[in-house]
């Protein structure tokens, strides 16, 4: 693989936050990885959708609420957060239960656009099939 090659990296998130450290430490990789100028996307599948729910409050469990960090992803040019529709539906959730994660599109006069893309299982399967590197935690 030559220098300057851009690969498609996908972070596949399937676990809820706080019960285990995977969600937090996955986000840490995403932030560090942003410096490498690769084509990055995140997928939230199954219980992974709970990582980006609105209104997380951890003050009574002694852990840091890291959900606001997802809002900063746009500043790192990470603008593709795929959420599987079926996973939301199975859990009685809708996109309204998720944080309003946005990015500013530099190619469109810095217009604010949603980073969350709710996609069907079939659509997500296509996106996954196109990846080079899949990071699962």
């Amino acid at each position: 693989m030559s220098e300057g090659t851009i690969k498609k990296f996908m972070y596949v998130n399937r676990k809820p936050p706080y019960g285990t450290v995977y969600a937090l430490e996955s986000l840490e990789v995403v932030l560090i990885g942003a410096a490498f100028d690769q084509d990055v996307s995140l997928a939230f599948i199954g219980d992974g959708v709970y990582q980006i729910t609105k209104g997380q409050s951890t003050s009574d469990i002694g852990m840091k609420n890291f959900s606001p960090t997802y809002n900063a992803l746009g500043d790192y040019d990470i603008t593709k957060l795929y959420v599987e529709q079926e996973s939301l539906t199975e859990r009685g959730l809708s996109v309204d239960d998720l944080m309003d994660i946005v990015y500013e599109d530099e190619d469109d006069d810095w217009a604010e656009k949603p980073s969350i893309r709710v996609v069907s299982r079939a659509e997500l399967a296509d996106v996954i099939a196109g990846q080079d590197i899949l990071l699962n935690f």
Binding site: V12, R14, I128, Q131, D132, I133, L134, N136, F137
Partner: peptide, 8 residues
């Protein structure tokens, strides 16, 4: 295969 996905 061109890539590997680990379903943990």
């Amino acid at each position: 295969n061109t890539a590997v996905q680990s379903w943990l």
